[in-house]
Computed example of a mutant assay.
Amino acid sequence: MSDELKRGLEGVLVAESELSHVDGEAGRLVYRGYDIEELARGASYEEVLYLLWHGSLPTREELDSFAAELATERDVDDDVLETVRMLADAGEEPMAALRTAVSMLSAYELEPDSDPADLEATLRKGRRITAKIPTVLAAFERARQGEEPVAPDGDLSHAANFLYMLTGTVPDDVSEETFDMALTLHADHGLNASTFTSIVIGSTMADVYSGVTGGIGALSGSLHGGANQDVMELLYEVDESEKDPVQWVKDARADGRRIPGFGHRVYKVKDPRARILEEKLRDLSESSGDTKWLDYTTAIETYLTDQGLVEKGIAPNVDFYSGSVYDSMGIPLDMYTPIFAMSRAGGWIAHMVEYQENNRLIRPRARYTGPETAEFVPIDER
Rank of each mutant, 00 (worst) to 15 (best):
P272I: 05
V48F: 00
L81G: 06
L87P: 06
S343L: 12
N228H: 03
E177L: 13
A299M: 00
S2N: 14
D306W: 01
A139S: 14
M329G: 02
R265F: 11
N161Q: 12
V212K: 11
T373V: 10
L191Y: 10
R258G: 00
G347R: 07
D173T: 09
F66Q: 08
A107E: 15
T291K: 14
A40N: 01
G226H: 02
E240F: 01
V48H: 02
A121T: 14
E25N: 14
G55R: 04
V212Y: 04
T213I: 05
H264S: 11
G33N: 03
A43Q: 09
G263A: 04
T83D: 15
E82Q: 15
P364L: 08
L284F: 04
L185T: 05
G126A: 02
E375F: 02
S222T: 15
L29R: 06
T167D: 04
F196Q: 14
D77Y: 12
D23V: 06
G289C: 03
T297L: 10
Y326P: 13
L123N: 02
E93S: 10
V170H: 11
A366W: 00
E242K: 05
A67P: 13
K270S: 06
R360G: 07
T83E: 15
V325N: 01
E69A: 14
A96K: 14
M232I: 01
E62I: 10
E38F: 02
S106Y: 10
D23N: 13
E372Y: 03
E73V: 12
T83N: 15
V318E: 12
A187F: 04
S220M: 11
D295I: 05
S65M: 12
G126L: 02
L294D: 10
I331V: 11
L81K: 08
V310D: 03
L191D: 08
Y108F: 15
S44G: 05
K125Q: 09
D173A: 11
T337L: 08
L29H: 06
G8A: 09
S285K: 09
L234R: 00
A15M: 14
T195H: 06
L81S: 08
V238G: 00
A97F: 03
M95P: 12
E357I: 03
T83K: 15
I339F: 08
G55S: 04
K312C: 07
A299H: 01
R265E: 13
D283P: 08
S106H: 12
E93L: 15
S157W: 09
D380N: 14
R282T: 15
V269P: 05
E16C: 06
H186E: 07
A187Q: 09
V266L: 10
S65Y: 08
G226I: 04
R127C: 01
T100A: 15
M342V: 14
A97N: 13
S194L: 08
E73C: 15
S103E: 12
E147I: 00
V150K: 03
Y236L: 01
A26S: 13
L123A: 03
K268V: 12
E10P: 14
G226L: 10
V212A: 05
S103R: 13
V246I: 12
E311A: 09
D180L: 13
V80G: 05
T72C: 12
S65C: 09
P316M: 04
D115T: 13
